[in-house]
Amino acid sequence: MSIGRDTIEVLVSAQWEKVLGALPGSIDDNFFELGGDSFKAARVASGLRMALGKEVPLHEMFDRPSVRTQAEFLRSQDTEGARGLVTMKADGGGAPLVLLPGGGGSLVGLGAFAGRGFDRPVYGLRAPGLCSGEVPVGSVGELSAHFADVLSAAAIPRRVHLAGYCFGGVFAYHLAEVLTGLGWEVLSVTLLDSSLAAPDLPHEEIVGQRLAQLMAGAGMDEPVEGPLTPDTLFARFQESGHDLLEEDAEAFQRRLNVYASLWRIVVDYRPQPVGIPVLLYSLPDRLDPQPPSAPVVSDWSELGCARFQQVDLPELDTALTAHPPVLEGVEKWLQESEGTAC
């Protein structure tokens, strides 16, 4: 499973894996205790410098020997990688793979796609709204326009694959339409357990559900005194010693707002069939039991895409985005889509 709670930590852990041959066990593992040395530290610094387009002094790798502390330094430098496009893997012979963010707006959980099993550059996009001063977008059109601007400003080939997990698959599908209209060649779209069945809920209820999920995920069974709000849950996390990415309640609130805004985007989205190859990996619980928001179609197979494939998977013991057969299947699909499979 990938290590990292946000885009920057995912990027750092991917560089560690490339240099050390394996992911760290946690974001607090010591680089040098895992077999790192000055030469390998220099390679990590070089990889981060290439990915972010920013100077990464070698001494910072020694002063900050964990994924957590290296990511803290990179965030403090106001890196472009924190705000737009992140290079998760710079080399490979195939067409680039661009990963779209899930509900949290970042690339958490997608680090395995930057592993050695993929023979291509891998990039990731981050949704606006997570950084101070940014505003979450209000429609899928605005989101795709933002992503198209970020990609167009980057020096990457205009012949790409798109993929996304959960909400990210919806965003990848729409972005494929937008990029095609701008003259890009989108070779394929991969939907990783993505559903169109997002219930139409108000912002406050979406945030409330997310707070309850975070609480349950942390194993907090005892009720919070008074109403469950972002401030009260953030304080509860701090008091109990549970790990959170955000250092303050304001940043935590921003993440929740991004989550709710992306949910609302899926509710309002009405997809159209595309001529691009589309592959869907589907787990048994992918479809929400509540009625879908789109009245025309309830699932991807009903869109009438010219080239659509669906792979139904059993319940997995590991995360879908870290499951080796899925990763291998996606790379094979990418190769077939660009006509390079053996």
Rank of each mutant, 00 (worst) to 15 (best):
A41S: 13
F147H: 07
L244P: 07
L175E: 02
G133V: 15
Q209P: 00
L327H: 06
A294V: 13
L175P: 00
M220L: 14
S139N: 12
A82D: 07
W16P: 00
T232F: 13
T232V: 15
G169F: 11
M50S: 10
L48A: 01
A216P: 03
Q335G: 07
V297S: 04
K40G: 11
G92C: 10
P136K: 05
G53V: 08
K40M: 13
A251G: 15
W16N: 05
G81M: 03
L151A: 00
V224F: 12
S76F: 14
V98E: 00
I276S: 00
A155D: 12
S66N: 12
V207I: 08
D63R: 15
G217W: 09
S76W: 14
P289D: 09
A163L: 05
D149S: 10
L100M: 15
H174R: 14
L20Q: 10
D221T: 13
L211G: 03
D193H: 02
A176C: 09
G168W: 01
F237C: 06
L34D: 07
V150I: 09
F252L: 06
D119I: 10
L130Y: 05
A260P: 03
G109M: 05
L313G: 01
Y123G: 00
G109D: 02
Y281C: 02
R159N: 09
L11S: 04
K89Y: 14
G25C: 09
L214C: 10
Y269L: 12
S144T: 13
E60K: 04
C342A: 15
A71K: 03
R264D: 04
G94E: 06
G138F: 08
D285C: 12
L201I: 09
F62K: 03
